[in-house]
Design a protein around this nucleic acid. Sequence first.
DNA 1: AATGAATGAGAATTCATTCAT
DNA 2: AATGAATGAATTCTCATTCAT
Lengths: 209, 209, 209, 209
Amino acid sequence: MSPETRIPQQQRSIETRDSILAAAREMFSAKGFHGTNSKEIASQAGVSIGSFYSYFKNKKVLFMEVFKAYKQEQIIRILREQNRQRIETLGGATIVRAIIESLLAAHDLSPEFDREAMVMCYADPEVKEYHTEIERQINAQLVGTLRQVEDRLRVTDLEAAAAVVANAVEMTVHSIKIFDAPLHRDRIIDALAEMIRRFLFKDSEAMTG
Amino acid sequence: MSPETRIPQQQRSIETRDSILAAAREMFSAKGFHGTNSKEIASQAGVSIGSFYSYFKNKKVLFMEVFKAYKQEQIIRILREQNRQRIETLGGATIVRAIIESLLAAHDLSPEFDREAMVMCYADPEVKEYHTEIERQINAQLVGTLRQVEDRLRVTDLEAAAAVVANAVEMTVHSIKIFDAPLHRDRIIDALAEMIRRFLFKDSEAMTG
Amino acid sequence: MSPETRIPQQQRSIETRDSILAAAREMFSAKGFHGTNSKEIASQAGVSIGSFYSYFKNKKVLFMEVFKAYKQEQIIRILREQNRQRIETLGGATIVRAIIESLLAAHDLSPEFDREAMVMCYADPEVKEYHTEIERQINAQLVGTLRQVEDRLRVTDLEAAAAVVANAVEMTVHSIKIFDAPLHRDRIIDALAEMIRRFLFKDSEAMTG
Amino acid sequence: MSPETRIPQQQRSIETRDSILAAAREMFSAKGFHGTNSKEIASQAGVSIGSFYSYFKNKKVLFMEVFKAYKQEQIIRILREQNRQRIETLGGATIVRAIIESLLAAHDLSPEFDREAMVMCYADPEVKEYHTEIERQINAQLVGTLRQVEDRLRVTDLEAAAAVVANAVEMTVHSIKIFDAPLHRDRIIDALAEMIRRFLFKDSEAMTG
DNA sequence: AATGAATGAGAATTCATTCAT
DNA sequence: AATGAATGAATTCTCATTCAT
């Protein structure tokens, strides 16, 4: 309880750790996991390589932390977007738009880190596993959202529907943001929205442009 | 001006080159681009490291060749599948199934190489570019297929529709084959098929289970 | 932006760097630039190959440092020798001897490194350039020396004279020290001295044996 | 004696060999011994690498052959130049100019190969030895030339004089042709000529500009 | 806690040379 | 004699990680 306690140092410690995480996210986004080395990260964070390794066992562990934090931010965004409005008050088209927007928003967080996240998802089992878990959560959330308007839906297998919809949106987002699709963004998003709306909702709602 | 790398002029030479390509595909599938080194590939191919470098400037160039060959095989499969039957004689549900099957078949070629191909698509601009070009071709093919039954379709913007459908299928395939989706494969495929059918076809056809 | 190679900040670091420089000079002298590899230099310096490359971008850069340091030592020797005595008090023959001796002394520093230095001067543009710059300095110094006794000289174009004299001495030194000239060293040095003396000085001084 | 004899093939053989020698000289001049590899030489000569090695045991042996041939050409040039005129009929200044010109001419043969020849002279004992032997011959020739006007000379130790003169000329030639001396070529050559003339010839002849 | 010097395994790549055809 | 495919030792250089201070 004396002022000699190391609490201020712990504060500084947290800051150091955060600065490494921030530097890592920046570097991984810009140059990828394999294109970035630990010294670069440390110096970008304004920290010695020795400190780097006292905070993180190795580069991979650091990536996992950055990745998890990023995914948590994404989840939070999605939840916030989807819960922003009372969706049962909205029309089918609007709901679909809201779903798409919520997933788009998640990817706007940092398109470049998103790209590298996909690299690692496909490349590394541990990353893949965490990614899968997150997808499960997003799916559950989407199922929850849909359940709120279940009586207006055509589809009955909400879980499968949510999975398929999420996949369609995710890949479309990538094709726009990462693979610069040759078509105009609006044409694709319109098509995507229409596909999802007609799939999910009963004809009465699906009819509307 | 002799080229940097050897141009096969003898039968033996062609065999060596091919064995390197085959070994590379195998190793890249199993251990990824970064997890495989040139010596391993050479010895897997039963060839000296010197030969490796006399046929391929470096590992990246080798990857590009393997990748391009793989993508060409995929394209061929897709075309063959989609042109197997006279599609204008088929019902909407069957057409959709055929489209899904054709894209699934492409990924059955080698799911593991497919995975690594995605890694590199997201990681490397040159790979991304080639991938984008192939997607364009697949899209064009799909648009062609749809045009054959245009009068039965609801959608009018065929290109955007084709893009969205291809995206939905591709990501769903990945979620099944690579990310071991928690749901049973059939539930997902059924949902996917229904989504696409209702999106593309007029109600008369879409009605059918 | 951290520099490519380590800038010594600790005492230990400076010692390591110096030990690499010393080992390099030794190895280059003994086996030449192309006959020595970085591993040998590192182990001769009692240092890991990793340290080698953290101090020097590559072998060539290391050579340049060794070379520049060597040339600086040479310059210092020459200046010291030529300024050792008040030359205006000396006779022409003695002055010439002093000049020859000063250049000989420079080459006594390390005849073997001298040899390799010549190899690289002829082989590499960057080395050549630095060598040329040093020659310019030596020439300027020699012109300065001559100017002190200008009224006793025959030659009027001091710069050209200095250049020619320096060339004559340098090649003669090499023919003695590197190419083991078939004649006895003294006969050659005597001839050289006489040539220079008669060239530079008015007859009154040149007469003297 | 029948037309089936391999004589034409021997002719072709000689041509192949010569084309390799020519290609080697070209490549060594342009990129140096270490900067050129055997495949390059072979392909420049329009010959397979297999043939290359059936004509020359290795790259070093090839260099020696090219080097020796070059030096022989140089010697021939020097002899021709020095014997072009009846030198006993010439004035001292003209004789000196003729000597300088003869040595300059030798270096004009191929300044770039000359440069690489120096590299190898300093770097390789075998090359050095051959070079020394050639210098001896040039020296003997120069002594012979001087002896023809011995009664007009000041110097008595002709061998030492010849050595020193040859050295002075050689280094000066290099400083002009290889190390781009900062002074104008004529000023240096004039100084060189004057130095040699005053050294070699009695005052009566040396007086003349 | 922090620093940065040191490590060395390992990856990529080259090239002189051999040898089967 | 000619060819060019094949070899693999040798070299350069990188980078994740450790450890003495």
